[in-house]
Structures are given as structure tokens and as C-alpha cells.
Design a binder for these strands. Structure first.
Lengths: 215, 215
DNA sequence: AGATTATTCGGACCGTGGTCCGGTTAGTTT
DNA sequence: AAACTAACCGGACCACGGTCCGAATAATCT
């Protein structure tokens, strides 16, 4: 039902899955493995829609997909891996938008404008899928290794370099990214009741200050 | 043994413990309750020293303190609450330093200098207790409600107001704080191998840019 | 096709966080 | 001091994440 999830790849080959968004096809998975992977993603997706991402249990996913529990863990490593796999699907929309979409976010606009547009784009994307993004928040040591974050980081570094800002580019990129971290954004918009536009203005403000020569 | 931990307060009175660092003494706890609380903190502290904060199990704490498991949870709410209680003890050193310590961190220096000194102070404090700070990282929805963070935030807001920066002060304070978040700092210094001095320079840079008029 | 081998399957099993409730004990009232 | 009440104590109990290994199955070789 709702045929949509169908990615392959992201297999558990090396010591750590790491769930890269990048490709790196591990040589063809067995037919039943692929089938089960699809069944599991489909079931998980349905359960998330029904009960909310935070209530998703691995047992339930296994049962719903009519598959043994061990299979779920072999396919996705752990609960977090499953959520991340689910998220990858959504994340791709955003990635396409800033990698190859239309300006000012995508290529074609000057780097500074792309940078200005980046924050609001991410903010809007995240806020529209809060439950999933929050539930997919991993344990502390994996939080910064997730593929999605690496890609965003790399993109920011690239833009900052292209602009030629007079700062520690790598560090600045990390800190800009920290502003967009889903839990923080959630806290600011929901708990502290800051409207999204306010966060966007904040992003613009910081970027503008970054572009200024420092003297 | 190593008599050090002895705070009272932080009792589970309302619907949510929240483990404020502030005082708000709930009316006298019963004698045995206080005694057990102390025993538990002492045992937990010892176990952390022995096995590392991340390996601390509630069962072990209960056993080591010769107390029922239920008692541990009633006293501290959950595992995270216990870790936070343990951390409060450490956190106080830092709090005293910027609330009432000597300049430039404490009162007496101009606000801008205090702000400049704040980042490095927090960075050094956290990095010297990584294991505990990381283990005490709570579930996503509680991460921003913890007393320690609230106090830091309030302090930053106060300084920024006093300086009279031309920005959204509350938001800026939140984002400055995001730079000092332990998991991020850990990632940058350990995984990305950035020396502490580099993070400190980064802090100074951002603060300086914040002080600049924006034009 | 039949044999061989690498991989996958699945559910029993375990550890740990967290809950619950009957029995007990500390304050309080008379 | 005795009775009373509210709070506390403790360990049995549950749910969920994660592991493990014998059985089953797909791909490969002869």
C-alpha cells in the first residue's frame, strides 16, 4: 500500500552500519533480504503514521511485517537505524533542493544568497516532520556521524569557502548547523513559542555578521 | 568514604522533578528519606568512579546502597535524574565562578569581557568531565529544561542586555549556548580533533561579531 | 540437477529501565 | 504513650531493545 518506499542499499556490511545517505552499493543483497527490507520499511512507515514515531517498537514492526525480530535488527542495526532509514526518504527532498534545485537555494545563485536561503529551507523542512526527526535522534555518540548531517555540513563548508569569509570555516559551519538542530528548533518554536520567522531572521542575522569583515 | 556529596533538596514533589539547580526547598523530607538519598548519591558516585558513568545501572546503585530499586526511582525519578543530581554537584563550581567569582568571569568586569570569558570557562569545565556530562544527557524533550542550562541561558541574556547588542537577545543567547553543548564540543574536540583553543577562538570570534553594529 | 557454501531467518533469551502495591515506618494528634 | 495517617520502602513484575544460534534458504560450483 502507498507504494513509495523502495530504496535498496544501506546494508550492514562493515563493522558499523552508519547509515550513509550516500550510495556505495554493497554487492547485491539476497532476494529475500531485499524483500524483507521493503516489507519492514513499509510496515514501519504505516505504524509511524498510526501511532507516532516515538511509539514505534521493534516487536511491533517485526510482527506487522510478519518477520522475525532478529531480521529487523540485522537489516537496520538498531531502532535508531530503522528510524534513520525512514528519514532518509524524507531527507532526500531537502538534499535535492540545495544540491540541484532552483536558485537561490540550489546552484546558480551567488554563494552568499544560497547560504542565506539554506537556513530557512532546513528549518521549514524539519518543522514539517518534527515527530520523525525527533524520534530518529540517536544516542549521543552517533548524533554527528549521521549521513544527513555530514552532507549539510559539507555543503555549508563549500559555500563559506566560496564566499571567502574571514573565519575558521569548518568550525563556523558546525556552529551554524547547531542552530538548525532539530531538538533545539523544536524547543524554540514549541516550548519557547518563537515563530519560525523569528528563527529565520536570526539565521539571516548571523550569516550577515559572518559576511562582514571583522577588523 | 570521600565524604563530599551531601545536598538535600531536589525532591520529587510536583508532577515532574525537573531537577532544578535552584533551591526551592520542599518542606523537610523524612529522616530516612534523606539518609537514603545520601547513601544513594554516595554509592552512585563511587560506582561512576569505578565503572564509568555510562555503565551505571540502577540495579547496581540500589544494591550498592543496600536499598530497594523502587527507592532509587522515587528519589531521582529516573536514571537521568540521578545522573543530573550527580552533575549538579560539579556544576556548582562553574556556577559560582560566573555568578560571584572573580573578574573577568564574575561580576566586576564589563559585560563584554564577561561574555568573552564565559565560553572558554564553560568549555574547560565540560571537557574536564566529559563522561559524566555525556552520560547525563537526557531524552530529547528534557534536554533544554535542565536547571543548569536555564541558568547559563539567563546569564547570557543578562550580559547581552547589559551590553546592549543590536540583536534578538534571547535567540542569540540560545544559539551561543548551542555552541557549548557538551555532545557538540565532544564531537569537535575528540572526533574532529579540534584543540580546545580553536573552539575558544571561535567563541571569541562570534562574540566579537555580535558586538559589532550591524549596518 | 545435485552438492556445497555463504547468508539469512526467526524466536527464545537476556539485561536494564521503569512501575506497582502491600507492608512498614516516621510524624502528628489526642 | 497510644492511635492514626501519610509517606516511604522494597522487590516482584513488565516492556522493550538487543543478542544468539540452530534451522532454512538462496546463490554458486561441478
Amino acid at each position: 500500500m502507498s507504494g513509495g518506499i523502495s530504496d535498496t542499499g544501506g546494508e550492514r556490511g562493515g563493522p558499523i552500519p552508519v547509515a550513509l545517505t550516500s550510495v556505495e552499493e554493497a554487492r547485491a543483497p539476497r532476494a529475500d533480504a531485499a524483500r524483507n527490507r521493503a516489507k519492514l520499511l513499509e510496515a514501519a512507515s504505516r505504524l509511524v503514521a498510526e501511532c507516532g514515531a516515538s511509539n514505534l517498537t521493534m516487536d511491533a514492526v517485526a510482527a506487522a511485517a510478519q518477520v522475525g525480530k532478529g531480521t529487523v535488527f540485522r537489516r537496520f542495526g538498531d531502532r535508531n537505524g530503522l528510524l534513520v532509514a525512514l528519514l532518509d526518504h524524507e531527507e532526500k527532498y531537502l538534499q535535492e533542493a540545495f544540491l540541484s534545485g532552483p536558485p537561490p537555494l540550489g546552484p546558480g545563485a551567488p554563494a552568499a544568497e544560497r547560504l542565506l536561503a539554506f537556513g530557512p529551507a532546513v528549518l521549514r523542512h524539519e518543522t514539517s516532520r518534527f515527530d520523525l526527526y525527533l524520534a530518529a535522534e540517536g544516542p549521543v555518540e552517533r548524533r554527528f556521524v549521521v549521513g544527513a548531517r555530514r552532507l549539510r555540513l559539507q555543503h555549508l563548508v563549500m559555500l563559506l569557502r566560496e564566499i571567502g569569509v574571514d573565519t575558521d570555516v569548518e568550525l563556523a559551519a558546525e556552529c551554524l548547523l547547531a542552530r538548525l538542530d532539530t531538538p533545539l528548533v523544536h524547543h524554540l518554536t514549541v516550548r519557547r513559542e518563537m515563530p519560525l520567522e523569528r528563527l529565520e531572521r536570526g539565521w539571516h542575522d548571523q550569516v550577515r555578521r559572518l559576511l562582514l569583515p571583522t577588523w
